[in-house]
């Protein structure tokens, strides 16, 4: 690696000012687990890294709103989120997914904001959070905005975040009435990056699917919401035929890609299996609630 500067601003505003530059070698640095890999492989050569661990501590806090929404500061480590009783209460799918997300050391270092802003389509949290209808707060030189997690990704390792814009918070609404599942498939070894991730949330009323959210990741260039599959589910009875129709629609709409973890065709086959399996498991979870 080449020499670079490491700066440590003491406020969010100062960090944004440092990142609001045309120099592509200036990047925000939180847990560093993603960026270090890019630096070690020469994919990214920094001129200046802006450490975020010195900014206001509120940006790492986890809390709950009066309406039952969960607010996770972007600088909370994945371990903190994993072990938070509040997160467990509002969205138990998040700690469940953490168990097989990287490993203990990476979760001790990585921050939830960095995990999302990295834009890696193989990450587990984007499909999980999007299925839970989560959004993020972003603050930049032009002010603050809210972005749905499903709209955060523009492409392979690309987000819609602008120059100098930083994620500050992840907001997960109350999950009352919803049942959710995340399944991933690793094709080379159990701890590999996934070839496919599928997250499903279902709201079932009197045996009929009132609402659903279906997300696929890893097999596609970016996190993708399976809207035609959701349309197949809406108002339908919770039976295997319904789930098979949704899986057909998912395969038709998801643009799967070839990579070292499998061909596009193989991933489409996986998608068909995993959508049905995730819907079945979400349904049985809902029945237990």
């Amino acid at each position: 690696m080449r020499d670079f500067e490491l700066v440590r601003p003491s406020s969010l505003a100062e960090a944004i000012a440092l990142l609001d530059t045309e120099d592509g070698g200036v990047r925000a640095f939180s847990g560093g687990t993603g960026l270090m890999l890019m630096m070690k492989t020469g994919v990214f050569t920094p001129t200046s890294l802006v450490r975020l661990d010195g900014i206001e501590p509120e940006h790492a806090a986890i809390g709950i709103d009066d309406d039952g929404s969960l607010r996770i500061g972007a600088l909370a480590t994945l371990s903190t989120v994993e072990h938070s009783p509040i997160v467990q209460k509002v969205a138990p799918l998040i700690p469940e997914a953490m168990k097989r997300l990287a490993n203990v050391r990476v979760r001790n270092a990585a921050r939830i904001g960095g995990n999302l802003a990295h834009g890696d389509p193989h990450m587990d949290l984007p499909p999980v959070l999007a299925a839970l209808h989560a959004s993020v707060r972003a603050v930049g030189p032009d002010g603050e905005r809210t972005i749905a997690v499903e709209d955060l990704f523009a492409g392979y390792y690309e987000t819609v975040l602008g120059r100098g814009e930083l994620l500050t918070q992840v907001i997960v609404p109350s999950q009352a009435g919803w049942a959710s599942v995340y399944h991933k498939c690793t094709t080379r070894s159990a701890d590999d990056w996934p070839a496919l991730g599928v997250a499903v949330s279902l709201r079932v009323v009197d045996g009929v699917i009132a609402d659903s959210r279906l997300m696929v990741s890893a097999a596609t260039e970016k996190l993708t919401r399976l809207v035609t599959a959701e349309a197949q589910l809406k108002g339908a009875e919770t039976k295997a035929e319904t789930f098979a129709r949704a899986a057909d629609a998912a395969v038709a709409e998801a643009e799967t890609i070839d990579d070292a973890r499998g061909s596009a065709e193989y991933k489409s086959s996986l998608l068909h299996v995993y959508v049905r399996r995730a819907l079945r498991d979400a349904l049985s979870r809902g029945a237990l609630q």
Partner: peptide, 27 residues
Amino acid sequence: CGQGLCGCCTVLLDGVAVSGCLTLAQL
């Protein structure tokens, strides 16, 4: 492995286990 996957470089930073290969010495 140099990628935080294998654990051979485990150290404790302020008592918390991290991968030494993914942690900048400046930190």
